[in-house]
Design a protein around this nucleic acid. Sequence first.
DNA 1: GCCAACGTTGGC
DNA 2: GCCAACGTTGGC
Length: 151
Amino acid sequence: MQHWLFKTEPETYSIADLEREGRCGWEGIRNYQARNRLRDEVAVGDPVLIYHSNCAEPAVVGLGEICGAARPDPFQFDPDSKYHDPKSTPEQPRWVLVDVAYRETFAKPLTLREIKADPLFADMELVSRSRLSIQKVAPEQFDAIVRQCRG
DNA sequence: GCCAACGTTGGC
DNA sequence: GCCAACGTTGGC
């Protein structure tokens, strides 16, 4: 089993939106390395930290779980979507999404500031590869984050 | 809103 | 296949 951290911009889709909907398709991933991970490595049942990016206080805010394996992202075929890709066809889809189920909203979100300040997290992709939106998290780091976030 | 980092595109 | 130009991400 692999542990993950998925980024989302809360103005677009927040942990509160996921809580309300119960589950969602994680659409709009348009980066090849992230796509490859979704397609080849993300598995149903994997736990996912939900991270709010590009906002006042970037932080790990909740917990989800993969509830659907990779499938073509339907927005790539929609000319009206900002995720439209004219080079993608239903016969040869370029982009995939996975489905994420809501699990938990953390009582104490762990901020990026706190993560950067803790040597335990120094080698996280969040620190070293900050622009990748589908990140792998080592199990012991994942557990430490969840523990801190539950207070 | 700025801008550094870095991924993608396309001419050659 | 190199690399300059360009676009996007995301912290600050």
